[in-house]
């Protein structure tokens, strides 16, 4: 791991690492609201079947996860817990913000208790719009994230800009 941190990884090795990382994403499901059910449909239902993309949706704890899907409304009361969960995940870690509420507050843009976007708390890699997004949209978000992982250099992990699906 010293090589990765020094930022001087040989290119074939980077590609090999990225290839293996992108097809073994362990997703922690942070289901918060309506989107959680669509996420459940995408992850647990036979119709959408996320495992064909090399995504394993059942880690028991954020400590085993590479990716967290924040799906649903983040409230000010919940925000510290979201931050805490994110801090517990091991690097390199990725975040998909699913649904309008997690992206920007959505229909609750003027509420007194809703956080206007999860990106105020944690960095987000992929935004999936929709209220709620269809399971297919979440799958596309995951595919885009995988493309990004495939291209990325571990050392430059945090230098990129977020992707927007759709």
């Amino acid at each position: 791991m010293g090589l990765v941190e020094s930022g001087k990884l040989p290119k074939p090795l980077t590609q090999l690492l990225s290839l293996s990382r992108k097809y073994s994403l362990w997703v922690y499901q942070w289901g918060l609201a309506c989107c959680a059910i669509e996420m459940g449909s995408a992850f647990a239902s036979p119709r959408y079947d996320v495992m064909r993309l090399g995504v394993i949706p059942f880690p028991a704890s954020p400590r085993q996860a590479d990716l967290v899907v924040i799906s649903g409304t983040v409230t000010d009361k919940m925000a510290p817990a979201v931050k805490r969960l994110y801090d517990q995940m091991p690097d390199p870690k990725y975040v998909i913000s699913m649904g309008s509420c997690a992206n920007c507050g959505g229909p609750y843009w003027d509420s007194y208790s809703v956080t206007k976007g999860v990106d105020q708390i944690i960095p987000v890699d992929v935004y999936v719009p929709g209220c709620p997004p269809r399971p297919e949209a979440l799958l596309e978000g995951i595919v885009l994230l995988q493309e990004r992982i495939g291209r990325e250099d571990m050392a430059e992990r945090w230098k990129g800009d977020p992707i927007v699906v759709g």
Partner: peptide, 21 residues
């Protein structure tokens, strides 16, 4: 019950403003 302990104000009073608006 709903709001974090540090929340100030009573939201359903008519004079409670929705600041985002």
């Amino acid at each position: 019950l709903y709001l974090p302990g540090a929340f100030e104000g009573n939201p359903l009073r008519k004079d409670f403003p929705l600041l985002a608006r």
